[in-house]
Design a protein around this nucleic acid. Structure first.
Lengths: 333, 333
DNA sequence: ATGAAAGCGCTAACAG
DNA sequence: CTGTTAGCGCTTTCAT
């Protein structure tokens, strides 16, 4: 039903051989301008669309890619929605442009389906290291974020979270704060490791004791509140909080409101990733714009290159993040 | 790289023809038990996986399906994350089991790629009516939720939101409340229409003036607050709020906290869809469990049936929802 | 009961 | 420059 016209139809209509059609359409071979135009015209007129599967079969290539989102179990954790949507959308769009369909691979997906569906490779978003698609040495895998404790030879696209963390912490200092705390989760993902590592280093450099709060379980706003409370009871009391998920920043705001702590006067707040939610709180929250669409795009491009055996110059892509300053870190008291 | 062993390999190894292999593996023809077992054994030993694309080519069938999430633009709205993840995961899992890959189709996706990628059909989640994949009469389309104002002849999977709404409202009454308000968005999706329609009907039946608050723009918690404030200033003041997104219930809780309104004593709150976030607030929020995985599963099954031309008995599937009662609607004052 | 052969839509030698 | 041919992995008549 979906697929109707084939190159045969075009060949007949244009009165040439299917080879000529193929060449004309793909810009291969030496075909006179006139013929090429004519063939293309006919193809257009007939609404021709190449069948990628057939092409893939002929070429021994693959036409689909798999995506798996790390740490997403059946009972979903609640990570930063907007980030994933943007990333996935962009990755899919790019893949489609390059002639690949991006297939959703749920957490439990057996790596075997990669073969069934002629999937050429996989993207694993924010891997924890447990994902089935990771152990898959038949096909190339690109991760978004690095595999925690993984071997050095993987292909990945990532922000420089160490630099980002530094940028946020320095921003706290520039706005008159000196004792930032870190609010994070127990997720085993590289951005968490990076943030913690850099935060710790930054503190040590300044002879400050690191103040790290960890949410266990689901990182909802509500779950953040008690941990924030705990952080704020430390002495010396932190005057800023950097959170490792956007929703946790919301939780921090709530906790402050409950305790009568003024933001940004008494406490500065910044989040590792920006979202619409952070824009519409009171006060709006400063955050890193991780550039999720760019991450998705680059991941798709990298994977396609790998699948095609192009052996890309760089299998490690760093996507720049930029700090979006909002009221939650206005100059403090 | 990915695909190695083909039926030829098995044929050679088992010393039969490829025809026999195909038959043995697919349970076709009349093959003696012994041969069949042997062939299957070899296939297993060699780690054989059928190539769906090749099979599709031979059979003139399709091997992929597209999914598009309604109202998801580049600049993402922030709908109920968990709902979509669960739905998409289940749909994908089911599709995979049935031999189809579920390909993500970003908002802008041209319907033409359906042809390119040999996509047999599409699932559109919560359509607004604007989605490109909807206008696609070459291939079957299943929607999750109905197309607002759409023709009656579409295939869909949906909850009975009118019944769900009634259930929530009746529950309000059973817990001693009599003036429920509705908090919703301006999204043009059928569940919103259903909720509003049923709420209005329910009110009229009881000679109550409907009290409807609408959030325009992004339905974040923060955006909900002022609208809730407005609702609570109505006279007679509503004593319960039913929200059409889980996050808006959180917004309602916040707004109440700010205003010193006690939940559930002064105001009952319930949401149209359950989520982890609703479980961990103070107080936990009563909600309908829409059974997102079941919706995804049924949508995938229905679409596959349609693609295969099975002409399913019912092209309208209603998935039951159940009310999860929590503290936010404990017996009121 | 089993296999040879054709063909799905496409591309890539290789001839002409 | 263009067409013929073979073949990608698989299924399916149709012979044997």
């Amino acid at each position: 039903l979906v697929k109707r016209v084939s190159i045969h139809d075009i060949a007949r209509e244009a009165d040439v051989s299917i080879t000529t059609v193929s060449h004309a359409l793909n810009g291969k071979g030496r075909i006179p301008r006139a013929t090429r135009e004519r063939v293309r015209g006919v193809a257009e007129r007939l609404g021709y669309r190449a069948n990628f599967q057939a092409r893939g079969l002929a070429l021994g290539q693959y036409t689909t890619l798999a995506v798996q989102v790390g740490g997403l179990q059946a009972e979903a954790l609640v990570p930063d929605f907007q980030y994933f949507v943007e990333l996935l959308n962009a990755a899919s769009e790019t893949a489609l442009e390059l002639g690949f369909g991006l297939v959703l691979a749920p957490a439990g997906t057996d790596a075997g389906v990669l073969k069934n569906l002629a999937m050429g490779g996989a993207i694993v978003v924010d891997p924890t290291g447990e994902e089935a698609l990771l152990r898959q040495d038949d096909a190339p895998v690109v991760t978004t974020g690095r595999v925690p404790g993984g071997s050095a030879d993987g292909a990945w696209v990532d922000n420089d979270h160490r630099e980002g963390t530094r940028r946020v912490l320095d921003h706290f200092v520039q706005t008159g704060r000196s004792r930032p705390a870190l609010l994070t989760t127990s997720a085993r993902q590289s951005y968490v490791d990076d943030a913690v590592a850099e935060y710790t280093r930054w503190c040590r450099e300044r002879d400050l004791e690191p103040i790290v709060g960890r949410i266990t379980g689901n990182p909802t706003e509500a779950a953040a509140a008690p941990v924030v409370g705990e952080l704020l009871s430390r002495r010396p009391r932190p005057d800023a909080i950097y959170t490792t998920l956007d929703r946790m920043a919301l939780g921090a705001i709530l906790a402050c409101r409950d305790r009568g702590i003024a933001v940004p006067e008494d406490l500065g707040i910044a989040a590792i990733t920006d979202s619409l939610a952070l824009r519409s709180t009171t006060p709006p929250v400063t955050a890193l714009n991780l550039n999720a669409p760019e991450i998705g795009r680059r991941a798709a491009e990298l994977l396609v290159a790998l699948v095609r055996g192009d052996d890309p110059a760089t299998a490690r892509v760093v996507v720049p993040a930029n700090l979006v300053v909002r009221e939650s870190t206005s100059a403090g008291s």
